[in-house]
Simulated scan of single mutants.
Amino acid sequence: MNSDELKDTVKVVRNWLVEARDNVLRKIDSRLKVDTKSGRSDLVTNIDRANEQFFVSKIRQFDPEAKILGEEGFGDQVDNIDGRIWIVDPIDGTMNFVKQRNHFAMMISLYIDGQGVLGFIMDVINNELLYGGPEYGVYLNSTKIDEVKNTNLSDGLIGLSGPLVINDNFHMQDIAQTSLGMRIYGSAGIDMISVFKGELIGYISYLKPWDFGAGKIFAETLGLKMTTIDGQQLGVLSSKPVLLATENAHRDILTIVKK
């Protein structure tokens, strides 16, 4: 993509997200239709589905040859990373959305032949949009983020998955105790915005492509590390426990994970 194509794509996707946010806020106090997927804590609502259908429709019009991987299944069956792939999470943190009407995000990312091109994470309630990529830069609303301080695990707060901590998977309790404190937000998008703003030094959770697609692009652009929990390369279509952290915190965490 040349610079003009990047600018045009950023402008178009930002407009989609503004419109989608308005749609969600208009319906947020309405009675939701809530269904379960894999279990009682894995929810989907009529607004998740409507939002994904909205994004899929917009992407089909804007980039008709591309494949679309969406959490709720309104896109394509994507089994390889060839070509242009849009990855969509229409409501990230659905439990928060249902129970709190807060702390949830919308996420979109674009990959071409497995390489991250552009990512977008919108904190819906706070109206914060993190967007960009390696050839564009990363911005929070209109402010460019040039770097994230390379903080050690022991000097920062870390975002963790509640179930991983409760079950002490991968020595997660030691990781929490080594940090200055853990935070559990219940939304990958909200956690990752906090990492890229420098509020958290890392985030660990079991994630699927729509959960980490945008964050992976930002991490690679800003010099942070996003890998599997044991430090291996994270494939675009992977569904694994994921570790996002500053380089120093990433090193510290792997030492604990592998002990």
Rank of each mutant, 00 (worst) to 15 (best):
N150M: 02
W210R: 03
L160P: 11
S205P: 07
I125Q: 01
E128H: 08
L130H: 09
L17V: 15
K58A: 06
G119I: 01
G189M: 11
K67L: 11
L243Y: 08
R251I: 06
T227G: 07
L222T: 07
A188I: 04
Y139Q: 09
D191M: 13
M107H: 00
I253R: 06
I256C: 09
N80K: 09
L254R: 05
V138F: 03
I59A: 09
Y139V: 11
L254G: 06
S194Q: 14
K11S: 15
I217R: 04
S142E: 15
Q115C: 07
H171W: 09
G198N: 10
A20G: 12
R14M: 15
D89S: 03
P134G: 10
R101K: 14
D146S: 13
D42S: 15
Y203V: 00
D146W: 05
T9S: 13
N152T: 12
V98P: 02
G119V: 03
V124S: 02
G70R: 02
N248E: 14
V24E: 05
M226L: 09
I121S: 07
I68D: 04
N46R: 00
D92H: 04
N152K: 15
I28T: 13
G159W: 00
P241E: 08
L160S: 05
L129G: 11
N23D: 13
M106G: 00
S161W: 09
N150H: 02
P241N: 08
G116T: 04
Y111N: 06
A214R: 03
L234I: 05
I253A: 07
F104Q: 01
M192F: 07
V78C: 12
E65K: 14
N102R: 04
